[in-house]
């Protein structure tokens, strides 16, 4: 019941968005915007290509201490519920508050799957359940994951969770299953529906998260990344993550 309501709400929302996007594009968009939108949306039957590489920029200076809107929105969007057992509950995104050991400077940042270009989790997965899409999104195919947890051993960001018990109240677009591993999907269902954004980015009221296409030099993400320096977590590993941080 709840599920069907959610699905209906979802399509209504995306309908409104798509209409709005369509109207704005038709009336005032220059050719460049038209081109990038055409690249970002594709027909469901069409294969994903590497023309797009999805990415995110997180600005630690804008991320507000104590705010966890992105975490709440992600878990609500994807039907991830906490069961009061923090050590075994799934976490797709979390807020981490840090202090520089030398200077004492403090900041908080959300951490999730970094969607690496060379994901260690994909390398180690024996069945190919961990995979990277052509557009850079790293996912788990819950239907062939055997629950060996080798990917969790391999991930340098602690981004993955093992489903330690039965799951209830799942949402249709994010299937989950006891005994398998899961992590942030970059809201792949929204991207495939042409929304071009994620639940966490939509929920952030402080403009701390920017989502977009790293391959499109004209996307806001690419322009911001070109303007000021940004960093990757554990850049020493040379994984070339899709998620970048600023002011850390």
């Amino acid at each position: 019941m709840e599920e069907s309501k959610k699905v209906t709400g979802q399509s209504r929302r995306s309908f409104v968005k798509q209409t709005a996007a369509g109207v704005s594009v038709a009336t005032m968009a220059p050719g460049v915007v038209l081109y990038s939108l055409a690249r970002a949306t594709r027909h469901p039957d069409e294969a994903v290509t590497d023309e797009v590489r999805w990415g995110m920029l997180i600005d630690a200076n804008r991320c507000v201490d104590g705010c966890t809107d992105c975490v709440t929105a992600c878990h609500e969007e994807n039907g991830v519920h906490q069961l009061g057992r923090p050590a075994t509950d799934a976490q797709w995104i979390r807020k981490v508050h840090l202090r520089d050991r030398q200077t004492g400077r403090e900041y908080g940042i959300p951490v999730m799957c970094q969607h690496c270009e060379h994901p260690p989790c994909v390398d180690v997965c024996p069945t190919g359940a961990s995979f990277k899409r052509a557009d850079g999104i790293v996912l788990v195919d819950k239907h062939i994951c055997i629950g060996c947890r080798y990917c969790m051993m391999a991930c340098p960001y602690k981004a993955r969770s093992f489903i330690h018990e039965d799951v209830t109240d799942q949402v249709a677009h994010a299937p989950r299953g006891k005994g398998t591993v899961e992590s942030c999907t970059f809201c792949v269902h929204k991207l495939d529906a042409g929304e071009g954004t994620t639940a966490c980015v939509q929920a952030c009221q402080h403009d701390a998260l920017i989502f977009g296409d790293l391959n499109d030099s004209d996307s806001r993400l690419s322009r911001e990344l070109a303007k000021y320096p940004s960093r990757q977590l554990r850049a020493d590993l040379h994984l070339n993550q899709g998620v970048r941080y600023r002011n850390i």
Binding site: R94, K95, V96, L98, D100, R101, K158, L233, R234, I248
Partner: peptide, 25 residues
């Protein structure tokens, strides 16, 4: 080897985390 926290933020001290970063499990 697993209990020792992952060094995701070298040089930084984890003050709080929603997923128990920085503390031994």
């Amino acid at each position: 080897g697993q209990a020792y926290p992952l060094d995701i933020f070298p040089g930084m001290e984890v003050i709080s985390s929603g997923f128990m970063d920085g503390v031994p499990e």
